[in-house]
Nucleic acid binder design. Structure first.
Lengths: 116, 116
DNA sequence: CAGTATCCTGTTAGATACTG
DNA sequence: CAGTATCTAACAGGATACTG
């Protein structure tokens, strides 16, 4: 990957939480730390591939902490770092906005193909 | 497009501001209304295709208003609706977060291919 | 349980050329 | 100026099968 140059803060933020799943994963971690399987249940529709991929990227940026317990069966717990918590807080207003206008958004985004 | 069902507010919000450009376009409109060409200059790197496409989608959701002036040469001005303004406000903390941690993010996201 | 490894597809976005 | 049209590349993401 090339040197990234962001043109504004939003650009950088979107680069980090962008994609279909990261914001939701972050949200799922905002109260407690969770195991891989737990997360999978908490983010409905996500595949194992996308879950681990998103987690790894967020771990690389320092948003998420991964703790391995060497037990049988294996246990791995994911949690937010301080950095992750701060991002989550920054994301909160957006989440509320989406919540509030969900119906309107859903309606606007499903009537794309005119009937007939 | 199928009926959309969002699993949370963030999901819905990301569906609306997602992609590479929309958040930045919204931002570029947050102070004043702007013409097509102005926007292009204000969102560095965007192609005309992506600009118009993003604008149209945001117009369809009601975030952006498009005003055509029948002059020669043609003039079209884009501005935020009330709805767009509210989204922009919800986006502000995220923008600030990105601004604050830009360097860290850029560093974390460019060292992907190990040397040699 | 917590992943990896492939293969495959649809969508996103870039390039280029053209128009009212 | 403000777009449209077309083609193509790249990537995100899904499906499926396998592993320590």
């Amino acid at each position: 990957m090339k040197q990234k140059v962001y043109s504004c803060g939003l650009d950088a933020a979107v680069d980090v939480v962008g994609g279909k799943w990261k914001a939701m994963i972050l949200w799922a971690l905002h109260t407690q730390h969770r195991r891989f399987g737990e997360l999978k249940r908490h983010v409905p529709g996500i595949s194992e591939k996308m879950l681990i991929q998103s987690l790894r990227e967020m771990e690389a940026v320092g948003l998420v902490h991964r703790e391995v317990y060497h037990e049988v069966p294996p246990r791995v717990e994911y949690s937010l770092t301080e950095f992750g918590v701060s991002l989550n807080e920054a994301l909160e207003p957006l989440g509320e906005w989406g919540e509030k206008h969900m119906r309107r958004i859903a309606e606007a985004r499903c009537v794309h193909e005119p009937v007939g």
